[in-house]
Design a protein around this nucleic acid. Sequence first.
DNA 1: GTACATTAATTGAGCTTGCAAGTATTGCTT
DNA 2: AAGCAATACTTGCAAGCTCAATTAATGTAC
Lengths: 136, 136
Amino acid sequence: MSVMPASEPDVVGAWREMQARHAAVCSALERELGDRHGLGISDFEVLDRLADSPAREWRAQDLAESVHLSQSALSRLVDRLARTGLVERCACDNDRRGIFVLLTEDGTRKHADAAATHRAVLARVLPARLGWPTAR
Amino acid sequence: MSVMPASEPDVVGAWREMQARHAAVCSALERELGDRHGLGISDFEVLDRLADSPAREWRAQDLAESVHLSQSALSRLVDRLARTGLVERCACDNDRRGIFVLLTEDGTRKHADAAATHRAVLARVLPARLGWPTAR
DNA sequence: GTACATTAATTGAGCTTGCAAGTATTGCTT
DNA sequence: AAGCAATACTTGCAAGCTCAATTAATGTAC
């Protein structure tokens, strides 16, 4: 089967395992964040970045990079979050091309609730396969 | 900030790192498999499962589970691959609800070409971050 | 052997995403 | 300061995905 020298790590096997774990975590997060809080994964990630920040605000482009989305996807995601009142767009006076995205009070509460679910899901399903340094 | 006991592994940090790695690998694979072979990631995964199999054929449902897609996504994916002649649908006589998906000659060649790119990309970008047991 | 639940695949509808093009602003070069 | 490339965001559009409903075949209970 394998043509690769035995000294090479099985990079394809590692990738398949990572895909499996990633899919399992995403599907669990999507379901639980969705059912319990009405959030998608990307929604949560954005709220989470904003909540991490002392000022609770980020430049749109930095946010996009941080959550691994294209600028266009992030723009529409912010639309949706703003429409439900969880974030606000805010012009930035230094550079009037850019915008700040900032967490509202509602967004802060929503994030606090969802973060508990998020951690619980991760703790349950992330280490649930062999091969990962599950610690302790 | 963190409310968790210090003995717990940083599951959120591990998840963020995994998302970053996953995104990097997917974007590199998407670009290179697309540019060089006209395949998307899911396309390649399906061809890869078929090529692995001694009979070069799989039941559609097993394929869906193996590549972490819904039945409907797989059905349409097989449509696309069949339309370009890389796989064929084949009724299975035991259970006439099901179908076999089987790799054509063209599909076999396409897979062999693409697999080289696939391994090269994985070897380049998968271990390219710290924290993974990248092996000796 | 007829009715009913279950399973396999397909189809319809809606959503999220990325790419490419468009708009507005900034900054560099002359 | 005028022109032009680069940057930040938004919008049009097409691709791919999931969920729910549908169609077809199987198996089970009576």
